[in-house]
Deep mutational scan, measured.
Amino acid sequence: KKKIKIYIENENGEKKTIEIEVEGDIDEIAKELAKKYNVKIVKIEP
């Protein structure tokens, strides 16, 4: 498992940072999160 930080922006332009532990393809997981929460991924840090 890797701990990563995902910087997101919602439709109101509010920026947030999510810190999660992931296993597998980080890009795939980030895309799923973006779709699920309707946010834009700004940056992903390993």
Rank of each mutant, 00 (worst) to 15 (best):
I44M: 05
I8M: 14
K35Q: 13
I18W: 15
K43C: 07
K36L: 10
K5Q: 05
N12I: 10
D27N: 11
E11Y: 11
N12G: 08
E45C: 14
E45L: 07
G13N: 04
N10Y: 15
E9C: 06
K1Q: 09
K43F: 10
K16W: 15
K3G: 06
N38T: 04
E14Q: 12
Y37W: 15
K40V: 13
I41W: 05
K31Q: 11
I8S: 02
Y7N: 02
E21H: 07
I18S: 00
I8F: 15
A34K: 07
G24N: 04
E19I: 13
L33A: 01
E23P: 03
A34P: 01
Y7G: 01
K36V: 07
Y7I: 10
E45G: 03
E14C: 15
I8E: 00
I20A: 03
E23R: 07
E23M: 10
A34V: 09
I8N: 00
G13I: 00
K2V: 14
N38L: 04
A34Q: 08
E11F: 10
I18K: 01
K43T: 06
A30L: 15
Y7P: 00
K15L: 15
I18G: 00
I4S: 01
E45H: 06
K5E: 02
K35R: 14
Y37R: 02
D27M: 13
K43A: 11
K2M: 11
K5S: 06
E32F: 13
N38Q: 06
K16C: 15
E9I: 14
G13Y: 03
E11P: 09
I4F: 15
N12V: 11
V39H: 05
E9R: 05
I41S: 01
I18Q: 01
V39G: 15
E45Q: 06
I29Y: 14
K16D: 13
V39N: 03
K43Q: 08
T17V: 14
Y37I: 01
L33Q: 00
E23H: 10
P46H: 14
K15V: 15
V22H: 07
K40D: 04
G24R: 03
E9Q: 07
K3N: 07
K5T: 13
I20D: 01
I26Y: 10
N10A: 13
I41N: 01
E32R: 13
K43Y: 12
G24Q: 03
I20Y: 05
G13C: 07
K3Q: 08
V39D: 03
I8W: 14
K5R: 11
G13E: 03
G13L: 02
E14F: 11
I8T: 09
K2S: 08
I29K: 03
E9S: 05
D27Q: 12
K36S: 05
K36M: 08
E45V: 09
K15M: 15
P46I: 15
K15E: 12
K35P: 01
K40E: 06
D27L: 14
V42P: 00
Y37S: 03
D27C: 15
E14T: 09
E28N: 07
E21I: 13
E23C: 09
I26Q: 03
K43V: 09
I18A: 01
K5A: 04
E28G: 06
K31M: 09
E11T: 12
D25N: 11
I8A: 06
K35H: 07
K31C: 09
K40N: 05
K36P: 00
Y7F: 10
V42N: 04
I44N: 01
I4P: 00
E45R: 03
A30K: 05
E28R: 11
E14S: 07
E45F: 08
K16Y: 15
T17L: 07
K1C: 10
D27F: 13
A30Y: 07
I41F: 05
K5I: 11
I4M: 10
K40R: 08
I26M: 08
I44T: 02
Y7A: 03
G13M: 04
I6P: 00
K36Q: 08
G13H: 04
K16P: 01
K36I: 10
E32T: 08
G24Y: 03
K16A: 14
N12F: 14
T17Y: 12
L33F: 14
N10G: 13
K3V: 10
E23S: 12
D25M: 03
E19A: 04
I41Q: 02
V22C: 07
I18N: 00
I29S: 05
I26A: 06
K40T: 13
K16M: 15
K15I: 15
K36R: 10
G24P: 00
K3F: 14
E45N: 03
E21T: 07
E14P: 02
Y37V: 02
V22S: 06
E28S: 08
I4V: 12
I20E: 02
K15R: 12
I41H: 01
K36C: 09
Y7Q: 06
E45P: 02
N12P: 01
K35M: 10
K1V: 11
I26H: 04
I26T: 06
V39W: 15
I6K: 00
